[in-house]
Computed example of a mutant assay.
Amino acid sequence: MDVIGDLMARDRRSDRLALRVDGPGRTYTYHDLITTSYKAGNVLRYLGVRKGGHVAIEPTLLPEPILTFLGAAQLGAITAFDPQFEARATVVDVERESEFEDLPPGQKLAVFGGPPSNSTTTHWEQEVWSENPAVHPEIVSPDDAALVADDREYTHADLLTAAKRVVDDYGLDEDDTVAIRASLSHPGTVVAGVLAPLLVGGEILVPDGDDPVDAALIVREHGTETNAVTPDEILDERRFT
């Protein structure tokens, strides 16, 4: 697989569990996740996001930020898991809508977690639900940027190469679960917590609080469990070149 969109290929859709977020009790099968990522990308296109454009996403550990990132990657857009980043589209929790109502001209706001108060704000759930799940026509290259953090851009090749090394080093396969306890604002979290399990057809788990979890790998800010790794360790051990 050369680009992140390859992880969202139609023939990978199945009834296997892809994402589980225990707090709100939400689950997505591979069929649900892949189809919804198409819809999320189409919503971003509606907001004016194009290849090479930026999407700023609040790094909340919920399905919407993950799905928005996957949709953006299929467009060839660049995600910043930082809502303060200057971007064509900003996607935040509805509770923060008022903080972003005065975006500069040309920047659009979308909120998830409930309907917006302002009629000019896009309601993520409503628009995604109504979108056609069409595959995006953009041609994306492995050398195209997919993520920006700390003034550094990471290409599709950077992220997938690192994810493949996580898979190899931790022996992940389709029967494994990777738990996320660290912020998506860290590129290492995206690599190990999102892309690595998707690469092998495994499960992404967002646990509820610090409850014990049955996972092959746990990505957390400060690793204490024997199978835990921090986002910084992911990047330190697998240097991007």
Rank of each mutant, 00 (worst) to 15 (best):
G76S: 06
R165T: 14
P104H: 08
G41N: 07
H123D: 15
A72G: 05
H136L: 14
N132P: 14
G53K: 06
R26Y: 06
T35C: 11
L47G: 04
A179W: 03
Y38A: 10
A216K: 11
V178F: 04
G48M: 07
S183H: 03
P187F: 00
D143C: 10
V128S: 02
A80N: 04
L159C: 06
V3I: 11
K164G: 13
K39I: 04
L160M: 00
T36K: 09
P104M: 03
D2P: 02
Q107P: 01
D82R: 08
P231L: 00
I34E: 09
I204W: 02
G209N: 00
G209K: 03
E153A: 12
R165N: 13
T226F: 12
P197Y: 04
A157D: 11
E221A: 13
R88W: 11
G188H: 01
D211F: 14
R239F: 12
R96P: 08
E127W: 12
K108G: 09
D208W: 06
L17C: 06
P59L: 03
A157L: 08
L47F: 01
S130H: 13
I139Y: 14
V229N: 02
I218V: 12
T189P: 02
D102H: 15
Q74L: 05
P116L: 01
T177I: 13
R239M: 14
A215R: 03
A72M: 02
A18G: 09
F240H: 07
D22I: 13
D158W: 11
G71P: 05
F240Q: 00
S185R: 08
D208C: 07
A163Q: 02
E58C: 05
V213E: 03
P231S: 04
V178R: 01
G223A: 13
V148F: 01
H222E: 15
N118M: 08
E174P: 06
R45H: 09
V3Y: 06
G48A: 09
V178K: 01
P24K: 08
G193Y: 00
D2M: 11
M1F: 11
T36A: 09
L47W: 02
A18M: 08
L61N: 01
D236S: 11
P197S: 01
L147N: 00
G52C: 02
G41M: 04
E203V: 11
K39F: 08
P231R: 04
L67C: 05
I180K: 06
E225F: 12
K108D: 10
T90G: 06
L172C: 05
H222R: 14
P24Y: 05
I204T: 03
I139C: 11
R20G: 06
Y170L: 10
V200T: 04
E153K: 12
D102I: 05
T226S: 13
P116A: 00
P83M: 00
L205M: 09
M1C: 10
I204Q: 03
S117R: 14
V194G: 03
A110H: 11
A216T: 09
D168S: 11
G171P: 10
D214C: 09
R239Q: 15
A145C: 03
G188C: 07
V167P: 08
A80Q: 08
